[in-house]
Write a protein that binds this DNA or RNA. Structure first.
Length: 830
RNA sequence: GCGAAAGUGGCGGAAUUGGUAUACGCGCUAGACUUAGGAUCUAGUCCCGAGAGAUCGGGUUGGGGGUUCGAGUCCCCUCUUUCGCACCA
């Protein structure tokens, strides 16, 4: 009569049924029915690059998302949970080079495998909205977007020093350089001067910054990272005359108020003036060689704190416009070419770096701010004076204290004399979007001998990637060797032209895909603005922290661009963001606990785990492992705890008939049932899935005890059991659907409504009250829940244990916390 | 160096507002059943001391101090770890 828990059969059955009934499919046109606005909810998980096999570490994102999705459905929300493929990118192309498989075939094969893995996890994606960035009907809109950004001047091409990864053989955006190395392969990045395509994200810097303030549903951490990345600084620009060159050199400073202390200028060795400044220098060749060395120093080393400051005196002088003095002009490696104007006014008295450099090179130091009362000899100044003191020796400003107001006065003063102005500078650079690789969106422009660079008209889109291309791994983009692709006609004059062979960064693909989910098959436009305005923004976005300043910044930027094009009403695409923590595991390779990844060889395959213990087990364990926002270490042993729990739940159903028709303690089991509904619901609301699992285990234990001791009636046990099944459904969908069906219910648990708890049922008539004497636990007493202070006090004082501890003392005060405890504060009997 | 988060049993962790610290699970110990299996079930399991025993006493949330009848939770100091930023003018 008893059937063992056969997870394989159960899971296969329900996965099949969900697929057939298209359980997650949402009709987008019906969204926003007049009376049910709040029923519509868009849930989204980070797109996954289709290059890597999924392991249990990846599962956390999707399992979490699916649990939330099912919870929303049971709470009556028409939730949309789409999934797509971030299909372009290097892994596919590398596979082509290494294994001779075409990137397209390799990608499609991977998508198939990954889709099967999602199915085996029991994740309900709405596959009718499926998109893949490598399909021309998707990437043609990247091209369309590019052309419109080009028209508006937001996309442009320029020669610039750029990050080059020698291993990936392509340029990288600043955001893809982590600690001076390629984000993907870890190779140190070098600088090259190349002509590249950029998106003018810097034009949106302020809006990207301001938008963060309204994102209350985002983790503070991510917002801080984005603020740092944008790196807004307010200050001023100051012009210094270079008499010998008959030029004006502009520097940026956040401290224009220290200009009287500027005793020399420092330019980045890469500064455009450098060559002319040293033109007449006796050691010109030596300095040029040094500039070359600095230029070739990897960025990690150059910007490391311990990297020694190195500089060269150009021999030229500049005029300090505030003092009229001649000051020397230097080149030094500690000034970065890409920040500000690539040149600084050095104020050694009030800047640590300038002071260090001045001491090293024997350059003069002059104080602007003086600490009160004491006279300081500039020659002996050991530390810069940063935010203290008052101004002396700067005639119109003497006596002013450090502060924003003083800075403002200086800027006005400079502006009136024409050598300075207010200026805001950002750390953020424009987004370099061109890549010298095949497997990406072709940039839709051609180069014509007579017309130069010509953007293609919209009706010539998409520019499709040619399939017939050779992947040799040789230097250079395989696309540029495809004659049929490169050779074309100019749309303007009809003459011969060459196609652009650079392709787009894959982050372009993912920066607007959330909108395409809402119009996945629209052949006439990027997306339907009407549908977009009804569904956007995404209510809940779930993914790892690794995209804090990549994808999440780019997507916000493109959303604002589309907003400015009048295509979508919102400016911020993601209302709530949840970052789940990484799964780690011990790695034999390194002997340490590390992020689970293929390269570290510490992955756990979901396939074997699912075969052995089932997807429900993996899901419950993954959610039980710890708070989802924190990192968690995978334990192979602990997984079996989740399996045992599910097996016990299975057996409970078979034991239900053992319960007697009537029994004494129904109230208690019923109270546990309501308390569990309350706790699990609250846990779900704050994404605390680990405590939800714990509460469900407790209810299961209570029910098992009631059955064992025959203390609850059959009806009451069944109620408790089926509440347990419902509450467990988002976490372990297969087993719960099966148990529900075996009970005789025909509707899917997804269509049942989430259990409600009754506050009155949580109430007890008699409660156990903790008794403390001087804050120490001494006894517990049973009292009526309604008992008043005097009544409780009498019962408490009657306790023998309490009386023992009161020997020789008297009660000075009794504190009653209703429903919880009474604390007796004593003093020695007089 | 700056900023943020966090330190609780052998381990993962719980304790939403200051009110029984260690829920739930892993592991471990003992026992039951057994076609002796890494299955299942039952009981025990923060530390120290006393007791044959049910029990009793004391201590414990990185360390030190404070507020309070009462502190894992609030405040101050300090140590450690993790993350982010870092020659950004």
């Amino acid at each position: 009569m008893s059937t063992p828990y056969d997870h394989k059969a159960v899971e296969a059955k329900w996965q099949d049924r969900w697929e057939k009934t298209r359980a997650a499919e949402v009709d987008l046109r019906h969204a926003g029915d007049s009376h049910s606005q709040d029923k519509y909810y868009m849930l989204m998980m980070f797109p996954y690059p289709s290059g890597d096999r999924l392991h249990v570490g990846h599962g956390r994102n999707y399992i979490l998302g699916d649990a939330l999705y099912r919870y929303l459905r049971m709470n009556g929300k028409r939730a949309l949970n789409p999934m797509g493929w971030d299909a372009f990118g290097l892994p596919a192309e590398n596979a082509a080079i290494q294994r001779g498989i075409h990137p397209n075939d390799w990608t499609l094969a991977n998508i198939k495998v990954m889709k099967e893995q999602f199915r085996r996890w029991g994740i309900l994606f709405d596959w009718s909205k499926e998109i893949a960035s490598c399909f021309p009907d998707y990437y043609r809109w990247n091209q369309w977007l590019f052309l419109h950004m080009l028209e508006k001047g937001i996309a442009y091409k320029k020669m610039a020093p750029v990050n080059w990864c020698p291993s990936c053989q392509t340029v990288l955006a600043n955001e893809q350089v982590v600690d001076g190395a390629c984000e993907r392969c870890g190779t140190p990045v070098i600088q090259r001067d190349l002509e590249q395509w950029f998106f003018r994200i810097t034009g949106y810097a302020d809006r990207l910054l301001e938008g963060l303030d309204g994102l209350e549903g985002w983790p503070e951490k991510v917002k801080v990272m984005q603020r740092n990345w944008i790196g807004r600084s307010e200050g001023g620009e100051v012009d210094f005359r270079l008499p010998a060159m008959e030029e004006t050199l502009t520097v940026f400073t956040t401290r224009p108020d220290t200009i009287h202390g500027a005793t020399f200028l420092v330019l980045a060795p890469e500064h455009p003036f450098a060559a002319r400044l040293i033109a007449g220098h006796p050691d010109r060749a030596g300095i040029e060689a040094w500039i070359e060395t600095v230029r070739n120093t990897p960025r990690i080393q150059r910007s490391a704190e311990e990297n020694p400051k190195e500089g060269r005196d150009t021999g030229a002088v500049a005029i300090n416009p505030a003092t009229g003095e001649e000051i020397p002009v230097w080149l030094a490696n500690y000034v970065l070419p890409e920040y500000g104007t690539g040149a600084i006014m050095a104020v050694p008295a009030h800047d640590a770096r300038d002071l260090a450099f001045a001491r090293q090179e024997g350059l003069p130091v002059r104080l602007v701010y003086h600490p009160e009362g004491e006279a300081i000899d500039p020659a002996s100044l050991a530390e810069p004076i940063l935010h203290e003191g008052v101004i002396r020796n700067a005639p119109p400003f003497d006596g002013l204290a450090d502060g924003a107001e003083t800075i403002g006065k200086f800027i006005d003063w400079m502006a009136a004399r024409g050598f300075g102005r207010r200026k805001v500078v950002y750390r953020l650079r424009d987004w370099l979007i061109s890549r010298q690789r095949y497997w990406g969106t072709p940039i839709p422009v051609v180069y014509c001998e007579t017309d130069g660079m010509v953007p293609l008209p919209d009706d010539q889109l998409p520019v499709e990637l040619p399939y017939d291309v050779e992947f040799t791994g040789r230097e250079g983009n395989p696309l540029s060797r495809s004659k049929s692709f490169v050779e074309t006609r100019c749309p303007k004059c009809g003459g011969p032209a060459r196609r652009e062979t650079d392709t787009m960064d894959t982050f372009v693909d993912s920066s607007w895909y959330y909108l395409r989910y809402l119009s996945p098959r629209d052949a006439t436009r990027m997306f339907d603005p009407e549908i977009a305005n009804r569904w956007m923004p995404v209510d809940q976005y779930i993914g790892g922290i690794e995209h804090a300043i990549l994808h999440l910044l780019y997507a916000r930027f493109i959303c604002k661009v589309l907003h400015d094009f009048g295509m979508v009403g919102i400016e911020e695409p993601f209302q709530n963001l949840f970052n789940q923590g990484m799964i780690t595991r011990f790695s034999d390779k390194s002997g340490r606990v590390e992020k689970m990844s293929k390269s570290r060889g510490n992955t756990v395959s979901p396939d074997e785990l699912i075969d052995e213990m089932g997807a429900d087990t993996e899901r419950v364990y993954t959610l039980f492992i710890g708070p989802p926002e924190k990192e968690a270490e995978w334990s192979d042993e602990a997984v079996s705890g989740a399996y045992r729990f599910l097996s016990r739940v299975w057996r409970l159903q078979e034991r239900l008939p053992e319960a007697p028709p009537t029994a004494p303690s129904d109230v208690e089991l019923e109270r546990d049932r309501h308390a569990t509904i309350q706790r699990v619901t609250q846990s779900f609301e704050r994404f605390s899935f680990n405590t939800a699992v714990a509460s469900l285990m407790e209810l299961s234990n209570s029910l098992a005890r009631a059955l064992e001791e025959k203390t609850a009636s059959r009806l009451c046990c069944e109620e408790a059991f089926y509440t347990l099944v419902q509450l467990l459904h988002p976490l372990a969908p297969h087993i719960t659907e099966e148990l529900w069906e075996r009970r005789g219910y025909t509707e899917s648990l997804l269509d049942t409504s989430w259990p409600r708890y009754d506050e009155a049922k949580l109430h007890r008539d008699r409660i156990s009250l903790v008794v403390q004497v001087d804050g120490k636990l001494r006894d517990r007493v049973e009292v009526d829940a309604t008992a008043g202070e005097t009544e409780v006090r009498a019962i408490v004082l009657a306790s023998p244990k309490v009386r023992e501890h009161l020997a020789g003392r008297e009660v000075a005060k009794a504190v009653l916390v209703p429903g919880r405890l009474m604390n007796l504060v004593t003093r020695k009997t007089a």
